[in-house]
Design a protein around this nucleic acid. Structure first.
Lengths: 229, 229
DNA sequence: TGGATTTAATGTTAATTAAGGTTAAGGCGC
DNA sequence: GCGCCTTAACCTTAATTAACATTAAATCCA
């Protein structure tokens, strides 16, 4: 299977490169275009599987680009990146069908989730995606359904709980920096969010206490390490 | 096993020297390159295990260097050092996988954690880490879980305790220089950290006193020797 | 040279500080 | 109102620093 191709239109070059590298390290093929006026020609040339458009662009804004892309291809998913100040009402009008939007500042985690959702939507129509199952000790974790099934019962997890558990699981046996968790899940590492993380760690520990081979170890001043077995 | 080789591209020479020394004190081999244009040639010459690239460089920026390095070697982990302003505060995350980001200013602790994680990822791919068990006299030591199990009970160790014990164990029967311990665990050998080490030695001795065949011997003015049996 | 004395290094325990854990009470959107 | 997220309050623990004790090496002096 060939790689998923993303057209990414962004005028802030530094930000763009970081996002591009990030997506590429997750095995997406990314073509970045920094000039709004060239977005549509580039689209025609590369024929991407999905588009990520900054709304605020010089020469031609993201919405206009989207309209023109829709003429060419009514199916392709488009994700808008909007600044916080731009009214969500205006944006909502564009988020019908295959469109979605993310408010800046966003975390990579967020972008990845949206991209994956959009692709799933594209492939399967309206069906929710194939739900992967993760086996964590004696538990079964369903990241998309946000459920954690133990021996006795299945617990529904909230979004934050599920995201945190997923992150810990993906980085099991490694030290994860507190800051990284905060930035990935909350978008910044302010003091309050930091205390918030503590709360969620407590929650997960309590959910996972049925299996004592599972442990979220604190590394004070640095972060956590999730050990399994 | 030969030492891990790091290519470190940084134009701020003063900062660079500090970081270089710090990494070297932790037993990494560090090659520093201050000219962006020479980064790729240096890469070819030394063939490092991991790259740490400042993004803002004269002549050639870190991202461009990364792209060229990727042509040569798609696997090697790359860690970018970015100033806060360069990301416009918009992307807060990092990516698991071959790439990682650290915002300047960063702590050495942070860099070390990233480097070690990146290397582990490289070595083990996505496989869960093998959780090792070490047998120390009548004790069983679990470095990742930070537990030390004696005949009667299992004691939870703190991060520092576990790291120190691991270090002693890895160098058992050899004389370990105090300075080396301080540099490896604390990153420098200041007076205060030195007293700190004394405290942790006392703690470990007390934890290990169940088995008389284990002894942490002081070699005054030099360091310690951990003898087993 | 060898015992006494000084000195510096380390041992030990306790106090302090700062990070994180826990639980519960607001707050906000659906 | 309910569920989730956030904030707050209070508690616990790790890491550091400090204080004082001990030990070994270095120096001194007969």
């Amino acid at each position: 299977m060939s790689r998923i191709k993303i057209l990414y239109v962004e005028d802030e070059v530094f930000l763009g490169k970081i996002v591009k590298e990030s997506l590429e390290s997750r095995d997406y093929e990314v073509v970045m275009e920094s000039d709004g006026a060239l977005a549509v020609p580039t689209f025609k040339r590369i024929v991407p599987d999905i588009c990520v458009l900054d709304v605020m662009l010089p020469n031609k804004d993201g919405f206009t680009i989207a309209e023109e892309i829709r003429q060419l291809n009514p199916q392709v998913p488009i994700i808008f990146l909007t600044a916080k100040t731009q009214t969500s009402d205006l944006v909502k009008g564009f988020t019908t069908g295959a469109n979605d939007y993310i408010r800046k500042p966003f975390s990579m985690e967020e972008l990845i989730v949206r991209v994956e959702n959009a692709l799933r939507y594209k492939v399967e129509g309206k069906k929710p995606g194939v739900t992967e199952l993760l086996s964590i000790g004696s538990y079964t974790f369903h990241p998309n359904r946000q459920t954690l099934a133990g021996k006795l019962e299945e617990k529904k997890l909230s979004f934050r709980e599920a995201e945190l558990l997923k992150l810990l699981y993906e980085n099991r046996d490694k030290i994860i920096d507190r800051k990284d968790i905060l930035n990935l899940l909350w978008g910044n590492d302010s003091f309050f969010n930091s205390r918030n993380l503590d709360v969620y760690i407590t929650k997960l520990r309590s959910y996972l206490k049925e299996d004592d081979s599972l442990e979220i170890i604190t590394i004070k001043g640095i972060g956590y390490r999730f050990v399994i077995g």
